[in-house]
Simulated assay, not measured.
Amino acid sequence: MSDADASLRIACPACHALNRVPAARLADAPVCGRCKAPLFAAHPLALDVEGFERHVVQSDLPVLVDFWAPWCQPCLMMAPHFEAAAGELEPAFRLAKIDTQAHPALGARFAIRSIPTLVLFRGGREIARQSGAMGAGDIARWARAHAR
């Protein structure tokens, strides 16, 4: 079976159900089999601990997570760039945000020491990390370079 024939497990951003989608059909605007919501909406998901497990650990897509906090000015400045990067990187990637103030256990679990910090995961494992605010183009280039 070729990579294009393989199916991927993708968590729905609306109901978090796992869906199987052929890799070759990712760009065809797939919808959730349970709730019929689009699986890709070109914007990052806000994740809590349960959502992290479903979208990062149980899904097959690489997931780029922005660890941030609402009081962090560089985080707030980067937010629209991260949003724009979601439109550029989906459906090859899922982009997500974790508010480290609201979910400190996730920040501690991944030893987040400064924010914003981008962490790229594949199969629930960290494969790359970058701290500091970045523009949309830099975010997309960085993610693609490290996902190989």
Rank of each mutant, 00 (worst) to 15 (best):
V119L: 15
N19H: 03
R125L: 13
A136T: 06
D60A: 12
D60Y: 03
A17R: 12
G135E: 14
P104N: 11
A86C: 06
P38N: 07
H16L: 15
P62W: 02
L39P: 00
P13W: 03
S114R: 11
A79E: 11
P44L: 05
A42F: 10
M134S: 10
E53L: 11
A41P: 04
A84N: 03
A42Y: 08
V119I: 15
H103T: 13
F93V: 04
P30W: 01
C15L: 10
L64H: 05
G33E: 10
L76S: 05
I115L: 11
G107V: 10
A136Q: 07
D99M: 08
A69Y: 09
Q101P: 10
E53A: 13
H81E: 14
Q58S: 13
I115M: 12
N19E: 06
L47W: 00
V65Q: 02
A79T: 04
E88V: 13
H103G: 08
P80G: 00
M78P: 05
Q58K: 14
G135V: 12
W142E: 10
M78A: 11
Q130H: 15
I98G: 08
F93S: 03
A41S: 13
A111V: 12
K36Q: 14
F40K: 02
A27L: 06
I115P: 03
F82G: 02
A46P: 00
I139D: 04
I115S: 06
I115H: 03
A136V: 08
G135H: 14
F93E: 03
S114M: 12
